[in-house]
Nucleic acid binder design. Structure first.
Lengths: 303, 303
DNA sequence: TAAAAATACTCCATAGGTATTTTAT
DNA sequence: ATAAAATACCTATGGAGTATTTTTA
């Protein structure tokens, strides 16, 4: 008889590639997990793992089965969540994933209000790159993501919340006048500093300034916008700053921000969740909060 | 702890609306099922059923939960199927659903060859209306459907196999010449006999001859093409006959078949399966067989 | 009173734990 | 020799069955 427990152990083992660690993750002894995996293999009539001395490695069939097991586990989590959170919006535990180029700028506005207006909500946060967030979302270990659109995955739904324009940050002594409308060409003639590989903001910037690609200097190893702004302040180059980050990052008068001429580069910001998620009402509310958090604290700075 | 067993019992109870019958379907005693349902409710923290004296009826939350339970069960069936049928195409048990206006005409050509070329395939057949077939497919009690396209459901995938044109069957003494190309107007001036409500063929015919709608005489209660052809032979009216049925149904020289002028009415015929089905290779093979079964036995009669 | 679901109880299959052995590096 | 997985054996949870009670039409 197939059991959910077997699928859970399979899922853990597929990820850990190690019986002992998988057992630990499942909070059972290693033999217990071993037995269940064996029974599963017996029931299915196929080997899921090659028992190699080093690490157990999934067979081809095992990969497919493990993937389906993951999907089933995700569906069961949603079922249980639905039962627990039915009707009471924004209560219980909500696991939110946010990309690094949004979290420091949006969360400080959203979290306090969320705490205040929904005291029975326990928010768990994960900040990492889009790719990682999507994986966690699919596994069901995250409920909803706050990220840059579009999300190209049919199993997820998204809503658009706002458009976040990019501004060009240049050293204060740059010859461009303060009220200039810059173009990709202006970027092209300067050294463009970008976040390290994997940040979607980096991709957005490169999409817009394709010609500037050769000028971007990855060896500088910038891992946060704050660091990049420091680099700009010191005259190492220029960068694209998302509008949402301006309030936080523009504390240094050695940097000035310039608007782009139309079409202005921008990114869409929105939420993403599993199409099957039972908490869509929660997400709608959360989305409203993010929007009003951005628009709320005074008129937005544009320049 | 949530178990698959609980979901199975819930699914059965939701469908049977009766603890005793649901237990019987699950091959367990009534108390056993009662206990598991109770435990499930306890684990989820909500009532799934109103225990009414007459019949247990799902609560609003119960409906949603039961639906998700069904989806999970369907996914587990696919997982097990994948394990069992991996690599060996067209072996094991394949559950095929066919609409009534295709089954009698296509299966006699397909089944013998299927038996011969894939002796280790056990085919289970269900013939009913499209609506019923789709429900069974979704539940996972059918693997694949042979029906008229399009299928409007995002959880299913389809392939187009062939175009099945409709011909007009009229009594042999009808004034229209044998080689006439008829038009919807010709149908309009005669009494159109159709299958009873629910047959997609009826809808296709009505779509084409919208004006003839008022002439269709439902009170004649035709439930099969064979019956309708008898009615045509007796001069009660005319009907649209799908080309695939011609060989079987045109044994009566009191009926003659006329082609339509362009655009000829037709229906697409194809296969449908769950997007998540592990047996897509099987379906591709099955589809090829249906196509060659239609084209195979000599040149097709068109007139 | 009859039909259906819930309770009571007993039994046994099985998941899990600890201790130990096997296996390959 | 070491690390990791499999095996052995014991315990206990809990799922299922039969018998019975409760509930309501």
């Amino acid at each position: 008889m197939l059991t959910i427990r077997q699928l859970r152990y399979l899922d853990a083992l597929a990820r850990c590639q190690h019986f002992g660690r998988a057992a630990e993750e499942c909070a059972v002894s290693q033999p217990a997990l071993s037995m269940q995996i064996r029974e599963l293999e017996e029931f299915l009539g196929i080997d899921l793992f090659e028992r190699r001395p080093g690490a157990p490695v999934l067979t081809e069939a095992g990969i497919e089965i493990a993937q389906r097991a993951g999907a089933i586990l995700s569906a069961t989590r949603d079922l249980v969540d639905l039962a627990h959170h039915r009707a009471k919006t924004l209560s219980g535990t909500l696991r939110l994933g946010v990309i690094p180029t949004l979290a420091p700028y949006l969360l400080p506005h959203v979290l306090p209000r969320l705490q205040q207006e929904h005291p029975d909500l326990r928010l768990e946060l994960l900040e990492t790159l889009t790719k990682g967030l999507l994986a966690e979302l699919g596994r069901g270990t995250l409920d909803v993501l706050l990220l840059a659109l579009p999300v190209d995955a049919p199993e997820f739904e998204t809503t658009h919340l706002l458009v976040d324009r990019f501004l060009l940050a240049v050293p204060a002594d740059d010859p461009l006048p303060d009220n200039a409308r810059v173009t990709p060409r202006d970027v092209d003639t300067r050294r463009l500093i970008l976040l390290e590989e994997g940040h979607c903001l980096r991709e957005h910037a490169l999409d817009f300034c394709a010609k500037a690609r050769i000028n971007s200097n990855a060896s500088l190893g910038a891992t946060s916008l704050a660091t990049i702004m420091q680099m700009v302040a010191c005259g190492y180059g220029v960068t694209l700053v998302p509008e949402v980050a301006v309030d936080v990052e523009l504390r240094d008068n050695r940097v000035k921000l310039l608007r782009f001429a139309e079409p202005q580069p921008s990114r869409g910001i929105g939420l993403a969740w599993r199409r099957t998620s039972p908490r869509k009402a929660d997400f709608a509310l959360l989305g409203q909060m993010v929007v009003s958090a951005v628009n709320g604290p005074g008129p937005r700075r544009t320049h």
